[in-house]
Amino acid sequence: MMFLSNSTLGEVVKSQVEFKLNTYMGAVASLILVQIIGLLFSMNGTGSSGTSINNISIHVSIVSLDIVYIFVALWAFVIGNMITIKTNWHSDFSFVGTRLSSSLANIIVLCMISVFAGVTTFLSNYVLRVILLLFGKVDYVKSSSIFDDPLNSILNIGVMIAFILMISAIGYFRGILVQNNKIFTFLLPVLLITILVTKSGQKLFQYVFIGNESILILIVKLVCISIVFFALSILCSNRLEVRS
């Protein structure tokens, strides 16, 4: 008599998410390093002006976190991509799982990582202020705090999370395509450049990123794009062969 164990999709996905969070702990830790490096680059400031009135000279530096954002975006792309590499994708099949459960678990993990990355990146703003005051040549730092405009701050965090999620979704999709066929390693950059130089491609970018009436709409757009890429990834990975 055979006794078969029955696992539901939900149970398996839950186990896989826990397992993957353990596995990618190092990758999440690397985010902190990426942010620190970004902060160090940011300290010089992106623009400055100076005036002097009656022997008092005023020097204004504009310091922004743009470099941190760029670094974190790159990191998100790499993480999305890393999850699909052979050892990670194949190890799911040493345990219990299907391609669908693996994809769902990967997506949930990417969402969780994006939230973590979004919040910490937003907070790194405050770290920068402290660093500037302690180590920089400044006497006064002016910037809005989370309490000045809580709603706006929350929306800013939301945009950050949604943006990181979208980049990681693109990275994930790229990884799945490359697993399907190595030719995408070359094909995708070519495709991206083609889109960037064509008129309709530029219009698409403008539609998504520029001219949004509110931040909320931008967040919705970014999340929708992420969902599209994740859905495409699930479709593309559903026929992937393992250990072949």
């Binding site: 078969l4 164990s5 219990v96 299907t98």
Partner: peptide, 9 residues
């Protein structure tokens, strides 16, 4: 292929 029951057992 893609069956949870087979994978679990």
């Amino acid at each position: 292929f893609n069956n949870l029951r087979v994978s679990a057992n």
